[in-house]
Amino acid sequence: MTTFLQVFMTGILTGGVYALVGIGLSLIFGVMRIVNFAHGEFVALGMYTSLLLFQSMGIDPYLALPLIIVGGILLGALVERVFIAPIIAAPEHVSILMTVGVGLVISNLLLFGFGAHPQSIFTWYSTKTVRVGGVTFSGPLSVSFLITLAVILGLYWVLTRTEIGRAMRATAQNRDAAELQGINTAVARMLAFGIGVALAAVSGTLLLPVLYVIPTIGGVFTLKAFVVTVLGGMGNVLGAIGGGLILGVTESLGAAYISSGYRDAFGLIAFLAVLLLRPAGLFGKSRV
């Protein structure tokens, strides 16, 4: 029983980070109707930025978070403006190819700048654990779970309580109607992409203390984000939280009780099943 609880809770903690990656993708899809195939590369970018800050200036990843958030929003808005905005009305395969291209450029620039070898940072808390009952929690993952919760609450506040959040939700629901109400949907899209990228970068930072990073790690997270958003319903931001937790637990339980080699396959199988049987996701239809 303790083992089960251990495996389950580890899944929940990992799932929290997956949720954070997935929420960004879902927000972008909800507001812009595009699937961001470069999403994982922004996770990698967050990792390497934090790595650089830690190695060159000794800035702890957690302290770097505000910088990562602001930098992520700015970078995302810029990428949206330059690469996505001009093709927003084109058929969907165009935006897919565009974001695939952006992702390739990012991962290859990382490869160029940092080399292909795995890197990691070691902080005083990297191997710290917390014991509650018989269950051991990884210190960094627990902290990242709490930060994830805080970030999600912050995002919720932005989406529901601020002018720009309302603009994004209006754009998500009906772009034409939003424009008729005087909402600048171009700005809403830039900001949605910016926030989505920032969330991805934050998850990269949160994972840095517990992972080895390589420049091509982004692809893994792009796939995870797809799974999370499809489980939760594409464009359903709250659903993505559930999707993330389900993915984390499924992987964790599957790896422990079925086969660890197929850890990544369980999520993909769930993903295909949901795509085919419940295309709106596990939690119905609401968006953003």
């Binding site: 001009p86 165009v94 190819l97 565009m98 695939v100 291209g101 952006v102 390739l104 450029v105 160029f112």
Partner: peptide, 13 residues
């Protein structure tokens, strides 16, 4: 693969 990335962006655009 950097070339692929740059070229597909240019082509799409």
């Amino acid at each position: 693969l950097l070339i692929y990335g740059i070229l597909i962006i240019l082509v799409v655009r």
